[in-house]
Design a protein around this nucleic acid. Structure first.
Length: 804
DNA sequence: AGCACGCCGACT
DNA sequence: GTCGGCGTGCTC
């Protein structure tokens, strides 16, 4: 008998192992490793999705107790041997559930959605609430979020009484797209003849016949016919009736860009520096060796052109290329560059795609139609079969690390795949992550540098403004006179301005000036954030929201104030200073709608606004020649965070945003406002000297025993009882002390930055170590046994982004 | 995660 | 005496 090992879609510690299912005779030859199946699971035999990770032969005697696979969802496996091996490695190295790893490798559209359908069996003596739920129909899908607790209970009761039947089903989320294809049934001479017969005022039909005469036997999408050739649907309908045309439905792949709208570009000549870098890397493509490169190149040093030519080299060898960029850098500009060079063999994967578009792009990669793959973090799992090169641009970007299970870093996955495919990886950045730069130092990565800007244009001048003094002059804590003067000057010259509001670890909250009361979330230990546009106070951790109070909930006084600088407030101020300036604001509020982000950038690019005001998201990958001034309003809010990476992140942000000034003919200026002008991160940002920053920061990391000198692991314990969480971690710490070598360091248990979230107390323990061969195994053992510690949930995070 | 089984309080 | 609360433990 054939038995399949199935990883079921139940993300929990206890179900994180293969379950055996019988492959019924009707499914033999239809089930293969890597396919999605639907299986009954648990006592109620509810149907859920699963992945087949192995098939074995078993004697019939051993299979009597096994359940059978219900259905096979694929004709061809969605996961190949590489992906299954990668999932194994990912699950182990990131302490994640296997199912979470597998799910993150396929497009969302292939992820089955479990649904519960209720069927009314008997109409006799049915509770009115239940009757209302079914609303005249005899089947209804149960949506727990939309069903009231009362209805829920009544439904359960009716089910127990046998009046309702519960049906489980698994539904696909994406459907293939069908389009209407118009086929011309006329020959040129027929069309000409018919044209002469038309009445002179039948403009539409004559126009259509002209087209048909010119394009005999053409098959074309109806929408294209309408858009490009301006043939109205009415004319098409009447032509179909006249049997000139035939319309049929055809399954098509949705496209995410239109190559015809993008101008083709050709390879540019490389400078000597670029040529050298290119040569070192291209050799490893040709020799098919897995060499990791760190390409450290200042902004404007022409990294992108090298990427494009390296990808072309891979294509020349009949291999595919993967380019990873941070989500926010995946702008139409960026896409146009790649598509302009490679045309329709480019596949794009980013969050702006619909489920269906994403599925189609994934299929194009999978079947080998697309060989140049550009995408954000999760594109690192693109099902590319024959990889020639992987490029990770802006490799220091924290968005490459996923902060939910599986907590992977795209860089690590890229390195793994490079070893699997025997192809090089290029990690590119102007400001590499310290870890990467240190590895280059040690020779783990092959270090390449581009120290010169391509046109030898000087970097923009950077001015640090000491806000402690500036405030006394301008009487405005947000704008110094120096910045205001600079803005005024650029506005007069019709040049553009980018203003960055560094809002990391910063939000506007409510406080009573009478009694000092701060409005907090009832479930979490965090103050609620003001969302002016939605007229709500919101909790960013659990989603709790409540109306904005008009008087203090504690003392009833109406002297309440909202603290913290929001982009909205800054925009109002700015408009007050410069009444005629056109200001675009980009923050979470204005970009919530899909595509809004791109829209704002495009408007700014077309110079339909003078000032772009925004948070972090405006700092990346924008290249607007008209921008000659970049202002950073509050450089140090991110510095004050109790996090060992605070300086690094501040330096990277400031360097990056500075690079936005003066990219073309005009010289750029950067004004950075700060309350800590003497801080080294700001001083080095002023001189834009990464190497010096690196040396200094490494010295501090060494002193503080921080990464990259130590590896780190965070053990987080969440529990309703504060004592239980502390006690559990304390027990682990005692045990760890006996297992670890003396050079390993343990910190904690200490409360996490936000002590309580969703009514769970959160503590953690940090392990810093250099070489502990037994540690990973012990931690996995810990997770397996932790399920018995019912009241405490243990989460293990390898190399956490911060310790707070 | 769900779902059933099982053991204690407030109702007919 | 039963209904139903949610603690506990298992899912091929």
């Amino acid at each position: 008998m054939q038995v399949a090992a199935v990883i079921v879609d139940v993300p929990s510690r206890q179900t994180d192992r293969p379950f055996s299912y019988l492959i019924g005779s009707e499914l033999t030859d239809k089930v293969a490793v890597g396919m999605r199946v639907i299986v009954p699971f648990g006592r109620g035999n509810r149907l859920i999705q699963g992945f087949v990770i192995g098939i074995t032969q078993k004697p019939a005697a051993e299979t009597s107790k096994l359940k059978k696979i219900n259905e096979v969802q694929d004709l061809v496996p969605v996961l190949n041997a590489e992906m299954l091996a990668l999932a194994d490695w990912l699950a182990i190295s990131t302490f994640s559930f296997k199912i979470s790893c597998l799910q993150s490798m396929i497009p969302n559209g292939l992820r089955g959605k479990s649904e519960k359908k209720l069927r009314l069996v008997s109409l006799e003596q049915v509770d009115p609430v239940v009757r209302k739920f079914f609303d005249g129909k005899n089947e209804q899908i149960l949506q727990p979020s939309k069903t009231s607790a009362e209805t829920f209970k009544k439904l359960q009761k009716a089910r127990a009484a046998g009046k309702i039947e519960l049906i489980y089903q698994v539904k696909d989320q994406a459907k293939p797209k069908k389009v209407r294809i118009v086929s011309n049934l006329l020959t040129t001479s027929q069309a000409e003849k018919l044209k002469k017969k038309q009445r002179a005022n039948a403009h539409q039909l004559i126009h259509l016949l002209d087209f048909l005469a010119d394009h005999p036997q053409i098959m074309i999408q109806q929408s294209v016919l309408a858009d490009r050739f301006e043939i109205s649907p009415t004319a098409i309908r009447s032509a179909v009736e006249k049997k000139w045309l035939k319309i049929s439905n055809q399954v098509v792949k949705r496209t995410t860009y239109d190559p015809q709208k993008i101008t083709a570009t050709t390879a540019k000549n490389l400078t000597m520096d670029q040529q050298q870098v290119y040569q070192s890397i291209v050799t490893t493509i040709q020799q098919k060796t897995a060499v990791p490169f760190l390409l450290e190149g200042v902004t404007g040093s022409g990294k992108t052109e090298i990427y494009l030519q390296l990808m072309a080299a891979a294509i020349e060898q009949q291999q595919a290329a993967l380019l990873l960029v941070p989500e926010i850098s995946l702008t139409p500009q960026m896409v146009a560059q790649v598509v302009g060079r490679f045309g329709k063999q480019v596949a794009l994967l980013h969050s702006g795609l619909s489920i269906g578009e994403r599925l189609d792009e994934w299929r194009r990669i999978e079947d080998g139609t697309a060989t140049i793959i550009v995408g954000a973090r999760s594109a690192v799992f693109a099902p590319i079969k024959n990889l020639g090169i992987i490029i990770l641009d802006e490799e220091h970007e924290s968005s490459y690390a996923q902060d939910s299970m599986p907590r992977y870093h795209a860089r690590d996955v890229a390195l793994w795949r490079s070893r699997y495919h025997h192809c090089p990886v290029v990690l590119g950045s102007a400001t590499p992550a310290l870890e990467s730069r240190a590895r280059a130092q040690k020779g783990v990565y092959h270090w390449l540098r581009l120290p010169q800007r391509i046109n030898t244009r000087p970097l923009p001048t950077v001015a640090l403004v000491d806000m402690r003094q500036a405030v006394t002059q301008s009487h405005d804590a947000d704008f110094s006179n120096e910045l205001l003067t600079a803005i005024k000057d650029r506005l007069q010259k019709h040049e553009q301005i980018i203003l960055l509001l560094n809002r990391r670890g910063y939000a506007s909250f409510m406080m009573c000036r009478q009694c000092g009361f701060v409005l907090k979330c009832p479930n979490c230990d965090i103050s609620l954030t003001l969302h002016k546009d939605q007229r709500l106070m919101k909790c960013h951790y659990c989603g709790h929201e409540e109306p904005i109070p008009v008087k203090c909930p504690a003392c009833g006084n109406s002297k309440i104030r909202f603290y913290g600088t929001g982009t909205q407030k800054i925009q109002e101020k700015l408009q007050h200073y410069f009444p005629t300036a056109r200001i675009l604001r980009m923050d979470v509020d204005t970009t919530r709608r899909k595509g809004a982000h791109q829209q704002i950038l495009q408007r700014f690019g077309r110079h339909q606004a003078d000032i772009l005001l925004g948070t972090q998201m405006i700092a990346k990958g924008l290249d607007y020649p008209e921008v000659t001034l970049v202002g950073v309003l509050n450089a140090d809010t991110s510095l004050s965070l109790p996090d060992f990476r605070a300086s690094e992140q501040t330096f990277q942000l400031l360097t990056q945003v500075s690079g936005r000034a003066g990219r073309a003919e005009k010289e750029g200026k950067v004004v950075i406002q700060t309350f800590n002008p003497q801080h080294y991160a700001l001083q080095f940002a002023k001189t834009q000297d990464y190497e010096q920053f690196y040396a200094y920061e490494m010295h501090l990391r060494h002193q503080g025993d921080y990464p990259p000198y130590y590896f780190t692991i965070q053990l987080a314990a969440n529990a309703v009882s504060e004592q239980a969480a502390i006690k559990y971690l304390f027990k682990i710490m005692q045990e760890l002390k006996t297992k670890l070598s003396p050079e390993a360091k343990l910190l904690g248990p200490v409360p996490q930055m936000v002590l309580r979230i969703k009514n769970q107390y959160r503590y953690h323990l940090i392990i810093k170590f250099k070489h502990e061969p037994q540690l990973m195994e012990y931690l996995h053992h810990l997770l397996e046994t932790s399920q018995r510690q019912k009241n405490v949930q243990l989460i293990i995070i390898r190399e956490p982004m911060s310790f707070i």
